[in-house]
Computed example of a mutant assay.
Amino acid sequence: MEIPLSVSIITLNEERNLERCLRSVADLASEIVVVDSGSSDATEEIARRYGARFFSKQWLGNVAQNQFSFDQCKQPWVLSIDADEALSATLCDSIRQVMAAPQDGCDGWLINRRTRYLGRWMWHVWYPERRLRLVRRESSKWVGPDPHGHLEVSGPVCKLNGDLLHYTYRDLDDQFAKLISYARTTSAVKYSKGVRMNPFKLLWSPWLRFLRDMVLKSAWKEGYRGIMIAYAGAFSSFMKQAYLYELECRERETDHDPQ
């Protein structure tokens, strides 16, 4: 049964993930909106096969692109998900229940995301991870700095049962390429706002991030995968400071003709 719900997705060359994502919401949503930033694979074909309203839009940045997709939605409620995510059966049932009998005062719903890494679901380091993804359209918007923006809602927020299944990095090459890309974008945004490399953070933030993931978030319980996740997080923290320093160096750079 369709419910008054739009699903909002942004894409770029997501033929590997998109069908699984759309299949999980096909019987749930009244409308699917896909905003693509220039795919050269079968992304558009897959989206149209599932009846999505497909838009081509030059990349605006994560927050602006998601907001553009959000603005195309017409239903009272919007579920924003990524192409590499899919709804579990329990989550679908939970959404149907709250849409059939909405709780008074709930303008947004937190959804717990479970991540699959190197062929196994993570139960500790990246879980639980509640994110605001289901919102009342008229009282919500995308906010925050790129590349990790988020939805913000003006009213009360409640929690949904069931997991949003996250099929993350294809492999280690994909993981580290994305970590570098995110670190570079994060640093550029911060630098534009006057933030500079912090020597203390350059030295200690990677170790603090490693300890946080290993001890506080129990990455060690995930075995070798958890250790790899913790080291990757430390690398990400280091790169954010390193890119800030690189930007400082470039700003101070002066070209001199050889004498």
Rank of each mutant, 00 (worst) to 15 (best):
L247N: 11
F176I: 03
I229P: 02
Y191P: 02
K201E: 11
L211E: 03
R209P: 00
W207C: 02
Y182N: 05
N198M: 06
Y224I: 14
D213K: 11
R209W: 01
L244T: 03
T168S: 12
K178R: 10
M197D: 05
L202E: 10
A232C: 09
S187H: 01
A183S: 14
R184I: 06
A232L: 04
L202V: 07
M239C: 05
G233V: 04
L164S: 06
S181W: 08
R225P: 01
G194E: 06
A232T: 10
L203Q: 08
D213W: 05
F235S: 07
W207S: 00
K193T: 09
W220E: 15
S205L: 10
K217V: 14
K193I: 01
D163H: 09
R209S: 06
H166Q: 05
L165D: 04
K217Q: 13
H166S: 06
S181K: 02
R209E: 08
M228A: 15
P199F: 09
A219I: 10
Q241L: 04
A232G: 11
W207I: 05
E246Q: 09
E246H: 05
H166V: 04
R212I: 02
W204L: 12
S218P: 00
R196S: 11
L244P: 02
H166E: 03
Y167Q: 12
K190L: 14
W207Q: 01
N198E: 07
A242M: 03
S187Q: 04
L202F: 13
D174H: 13
D174R: 09
L247H: 11
A234M: 07
A183P: 05
L208G: 03
S236T: 12
L216I: 13
S181N: 08
A219H: 09
V189I: 10
T185E: 15
M214C: 07
W207F: 06
R170P: 04
Y191W: 13
Y169C: 14
F176V: 02
R184Y: 14
W220G: 15
S205W: 09
Y169E: 15
Y182A: 02
L165S: 00
F238A: 10
I180L: 05
D173W: 10
R209V: 03
P199Y: 13
M197Q: 15
T186C: 07
Y231W: 09
L203W: 11
Y231P: 00
T185D: 09
S236V: 00
Y167P: 06
V189W: 07
